[in-house]
Every structure is written in C-alpha cells, then in structure tokens.
Design a protein around this nucleic acid. Sequence first.
DNA 1: CTTGCACTTAACCGATCGGTCAACTATATT
DNA 2: AATATAGTTGACCGATCGGTTAAGTGCAAG
Lengths: 201, 201
Amino acid sequence: MNITIDTRSRIIAAAKPRFHSRSYANVGIQEICEGAGIQKGSFYHFFPSKRDLVMAVIDEFADEWAHGFVAEAFDPALPPMERIDYLIDAAYFWQKSIKQVHGRMLGCIFGNLTLEVSTQDDILRAKLLAIFTRAKSRFQEALDQAIAGGDIPPLDSALTAEAMLAYLEGVILLAKAQNDPEVLYRLGPAIKTLRIELAQA
Amino acid sequence: MNITIDTRSRIIAAAKPRFHSRSYANVGIQEICEGAGIQKGSFYHFFPSKRDLVMAVIDEFADEWAHGFVAEAFDPALPPMERIDYLIDAAYFWQKSIKQVHGRMLGCIFGNLTLEVSTQDDILRAKLLAIFTRAKSRFQEALDQAIAGGDIPPLDSALTAEAMLAYLEGVILLAKAQNDPEVLYRLGPAIKTLRIELAQA
DNA sequence: CTTGCACTTAACCGATCGGTCAACTATATT
DNA sequence: AATATAGTTGACCGATCGGTTAAGTGCAAG
C-alpha cells in the first residue's frame, strides 16, 4: 500500500514549494515530475489534471496551518485577543524563516492563488474561498469570546473577523511587494484596531 | 507619426483588459497581437519583451487611476478623512461596474501582479512597489492633514497609511475570492478604524 | 530620383505546455 | 500457474510559449 501513497505524496511534496514560491501557471507538470523523480504518465495516474494537483496542494497547506500555527494561536486556553496577536506573530516568524531559507518572501499561497486563478477557474476559487471562510470563523470565535468576556466592547464579529482576515492578507501582499517580512512585524499588530460596529436595529 | 503611436497604443489597449482579467502568465503575446490586429514582429518593434509591455500596462493603469478616481478622492478641497471614504467608494463602484460588464470581480491589477510575479522578477516587483509607495503617500498626506486639523488624534501617519493601503488590497482580495464587489462595500469603511500609534520617544 | 529609416509582414525557432497512450512490471488473488 | 489489477515507463500528441529573422512596404529628407 505504501508505494502508491509514497508516490502521490512525493508529487505533492514536489509541487508545494514550487506553487508557493512561483505561481500556478509558471510551474509545469514536467518539472514537478522531475522533482518527484517520476514520469508524467505516473503523475496522471494519481491526478486527473493539474487543477486536481493544486487542489491537493491547497489541502495540504490548509492542514499544515490548521494543525500547526493556527491550532497554537487559536488555543482556547489563551485569552481571546491574544490568539490574534499570536497568529500575527506566527505568520511573521513563518515568513521570516522562509525568507532566510529561500531568500524571498513567498507570502500566503491562498492569497497568491486567489488573485491568480479566481477569475479563470470557479472550482479553484470556491476551494480557496472555503479556506478563507474557515479562517474567518477562527477570528470570529475569538472576537465573540472576547466580547463575552468583556475584553472588548461589542461589535459585529462576523464583519470584523472578515476585515481582520482581509487586513492580514493585505499586509502579506505589501510585505511580498517589498520582499520584507518586517512589514508584517510593523503593520500586523494593528489588526486589533479594526472594528466594524453592529448595525443599528 | 501617428501610425506608430497608434499601433503601440493599440497593443497596450489590447493587453490591458487581458492582464487585468486573467494573469500575466496566462496571456500570450500572440493573443495580444490578434487583439491589436498586428503581427508579432510588429509587437517586438515596440516592446523588447513581454515584461516591457506589462510595465507599460502598469503605467497606463497607474495614470488612469492617478488622473481619475484618485485625483477626485484626494482632492485637497475635501476634508482629509472624507478623501479616504471617497477612495473606498470609488474602488467599490469601479469594481462593481467592471463586474456588471465583465461578469467578474477583477480586483486590483497591481495587487494581482504583485502576488503573481514578485518572487520571479525583481524589476517588476520594484515597479509595483513604486506604485504602492505613491498610493501610501496619498493616504499619509490625508492623515497628516487630518491630524493637523484636529479631526483625528495623533498617530503614526506613515505606518497607518501603509496599513490602510494593505487593508484596501486585502479587502479587494477577499472580494475577488467571493467574486462579489459588495465585500468592498461592507468592509471598506472600516479602513478608518485602523490606527498605529506613534512610537514612544 | 535615391537613399535611409520606421514600420510591417509572415514564416520560423527551439522549448515547453497539459495531457494521452500502449506497453511493461510488480504484486496480490484465485 | 493463471489472472487481474495498480503502478510505472517513455514516447508521443497538437498547441502554444516568448522571441527572431529576412524580406518587404511606405514615407520623408537629401
């Protein structure tokens, strides 16, 4: 059973850093196959198309985040607003370590792919949107608990959570434009100043 | 003199909507030549490379913005903080009208290109960064004047301006992920809640 | 009337694109 | 031992990629 799984995961492992550091269109199947040490026919045994591969890559990144930084940051044991600080910190250190190794700020693969493909492929767009929707829920939970605990004044947690997610993506975008993770360090903490009030009844 | 200029600007005119609505890698020279009704050799008479074309396209978009919405929004006659409202409004209506015509939220071409190419081409990255830097200055001027006029409490106008720009780009990204300009309408106004305090002396 | 230059045409370059295919190997089942 | 099936190989597909080139065309200056 393991050979099969191994090949498939080697394909994904070869694809992940390439899609992250370049772009969807700029990475070819052939290069991925070379990276994985397999032949093209073998690739298409496991993935019906390039799009299916990138979907699997998206899932892998999402799992990696969900079980790594995000799980740590949104730890229920932490005070709610500190979770948001933690997430910003984690994003900063992650991007910084990538730059140290790779020499480049690679940014957020979900944001990267969203801007590249979402006008051309609604299935990919839906997949990426689902990732963002889940991320937003994490912010919203933290905000709701912060409000319930009296840590912050009441606000529209759904919209504010979405605004915070947008801000995070935007900060990563600007950091990538400057190839400098320190942008995240300077701008990130201001995420907690974002507020969208509850609409009047 | 006009034939030459006409051909060059027809190339740019054919390229602009294509780069905006798809991506840099996904639009080929051949397609642009067909769109402009010329031959490939003619293209390379005016542009040494595809990259030079996209630089010209970036300039065109930048000029269009600078002399259009941005000039209106950052009108010195407007109260400083209202300029920011105006810009958000303008971005919203622009994206909305694009979607009505094109059926898609295309987002910000500067953001799109930044995430696609900035790890692969430092010259393009520098060009895009210069656009962002100019945009940040507009925000900062408005903030400085708002502070001077007592409209808002003092803050770090350089960092807050950058944060606002990041937020705008992030909101457009999320709107594109949802293919829905209304996201801009809902989240946009919260840009004014962003604050980064002055560092202690 | 000629020379020169800006511009255009259309064929062409090697490389790569995403994807297919038939033949082959290895393993597990009967 | 025979069969079925999962996985693999490597050649191949037509299309397109960014870019080049040689041969023209048309106009303007001398």
